[in-house]
Design a protein around this nucleic acid. Structure first.
Lengths: 116, 116
DNA sequence: ATCATGTGCAACCTCCAGGTTGCAAAGGTA
DNA sequence: TACCTTTGCAACCTGGAGGTTGCACATGAT
């Protein structure tokens, strides 16, 4: 397999992990709350989330697994913060896909022009 | 509930749909292939995908449900194309989250400064 | 020392996402 | 018409995602 394909596979696997983490309404809601209110504890995040604290806890694990958040222990609390660098990575992937598509469409148009 | 919160909920629901669609490796692979090679038929997309044509077909339905692709019938084939506008929407959501987080952190720092 | 609060761990349940196989149908082609 | 190709439909299977409850364990406050 070519180096290029290999790299694409890795990028896809990596990016899909991030997108999957953001792909659940409850989880994206947690991310939105963090972004709006800043660092928060598990209990705080649970309030008004519509699900159990345990559920939120699991979701935070998932988000952490994708590198989207990290925690800091403060006394008996566990404060969670966003990892914006990771979000940027996802953003760049979206940009790359858009750009490649535009290029592909460009080539296609040129080809059609040439044919007729 | 405030208008602002209402809007946020909608945005979250909408965006999580898109992220969920991109959150599967096979599906993101399809998106990547489309972006790299341009419009393709179901059969073409299935070749070298590692799964059945039926599986790819289902994935395309999911992507279409999220508004990320649309199809054009050409003879007996069904050609699928990317919907980059939808990708941009997801990108903007990521940007918004990052920006809000930065603002929240900024407020937090100002608060800490003031306290001591 | 006692009590309240924040979190972790584990067992459990339910449902559906992702995949398969098999067959029918529609549209090109010789 | 007969044939090949591309797609659609339906039934089916399985693992894990998302959720819950119950209890144990730290840690801070009184």
């Amino acid at each position: 397999m070519s180096r290029r394909l290999e790299r694409t596979r890795r990028a896809v696997a990596e990016a899909s992990l991030i997108f999957a983490a953001l792909g659940d309404p409850t989880r994206l809601g947690v991310v939105a709350r963090l972004s709006a209110e800043g660092p928060l504890s598990i209990t705080r995040l649970s309030e008004g989330a519509g699900v159990t604290r345990q559920a939120i806890s699991k979701h935070l694990q998932t988000l952490a697994g994708a590198g989207l958040v990290h925690d800091v222990r403060v006394g008996r609390e566990r404060i969670w913060e966003l990892e914006t660098a990771r979000l940027q990575l996802a953003r760049r992937e979206l940009d790359r896909i858009s750009a490649e598509w535009d290029a592909a469409i460009g080539r296609l148009k040129a080809f059609v022009e040439e044919e007729r």
